[in-house]
Design a protein around this nucleic acid. Sequence first.
DNA 1: CCTTTTATCGGACGATCGTACGGTATCATG
DNA 2: CATGATACCGTACGATCGTCCGATAAAAGG
Lengths: 191, 191
Amino acid sequence: MAETRSEVTQAAVERASVEGLEGLTIGRLADEARMRKSSVFSLFGSKQELQLAALEGAVEQFTDEVWGPVAGERPGLPRLLALCDRWLAYHERGAMPGGCFLTTATVEYDARPGPLRDAVARTMQRWFGVLEREVATAIEAGDLPADTNERDVAFQLNALAAAASYGFQLSRDPEVFAVARRSMRTALAPG
Amino acid sequence: MAETRSEVTQAAVERASVEGLEGLTIGRLADEARMRKSSVFSLFGSKQELQLAALEGAVEQFTDEVWGPVAGERPGLPRLLALCDRWLAYHERGAMPGGCFLTTATVEYDARPGPLRDAVARTMQRWFGVLEREVATAIEAGDLPADTNERDVAFQLNALAAAASYGFQLSRDPEVFAVARRSMRTALAPG
DNA sequence: CCTTTTATCGGACGATCGTACGGTATCATG
DNA sequence: CATGATACCGTACGATCGTCCGATAAAAGG
């Protein structure tokens, strides 16, 4: 069951990146997995649990594919730049068929109270924490000016990556990633 | 009928900013307008027409409240800065209960083919055109360096405004607007 | 070999959705 | 006053949704 559940969860992640977590339906997910609606339902107990599992799965995948490969870089600006590149490449190669999962979930639930919104908010806050710490490390390493505002830079990087994702999804113009990459470099320009 | 239709459309705009255009339902909209489902339906003919009307209404409102008041400013950086301020203020004062309508619609339909996606893409493209022209005007006025990339700057401004909107919706921390405003100033820093 | 557990299935439920269509009340016009 | 248009209502339809529950078959454990 654990295996089946994680397979269905993975399918849910991909679908949700396209149609949103609210757009998920247990029936269509069951069709895709060649199972019955009642079987998929019993794997999660409720639609909300399925949505939460999808969110968790998406974060796990993102962490593995973006953070994992750059963790070995030299702490400071090199690691931060590698992270940004990996981040954009993740979206550029279409790892998520509908674009950035977390952005989709954020925009979907930012004004809708409930467990989903809370989970998304916690995830987002954690991610901003990672970015800010990464910027702080670059400052300590002397790679960025001492008066760099960590929060501002983290906000900018996240805004640019998200915009690259939905901008590409909408226009299908790969050039937006070049625009985003240049913009990130500018935001991280020392001086 | 035209009056009734525009009232319902306005209500649809606000609801859609919270629950998305796909989350709109004719029945709940009818309750809100103290009408019957069939009446609201007959005003639009289909749900899709309702969604398209909501998109059009949102754009109209945004144009009136953001672009209108700054059109009189001196063309160049002053007008562009005024536009950015008005833009952020629009979201900061909660003109849209669920945050930026166009961002919500973009993220919702960017990976879903159909008339809605096409309409959103056209709207977004038009908006980017406005921003790029505005940047170009500032360059011509000598307010920005001649080698400024209009597309990059327009992309950055839009990314920052959108991120400010959903960041605020999610965290309810007004500070994000200050962060966004500083970030916009940085993106427009001459030199 | 029998029993218990476990995963999946089949079918049903009430609710809500978009859509359709004929009826009704209001009101301007001749 | 009669007539026609107009705006809204009442009701119904088929589809799909999340959820629940009992059956079933396979696997596991004694």
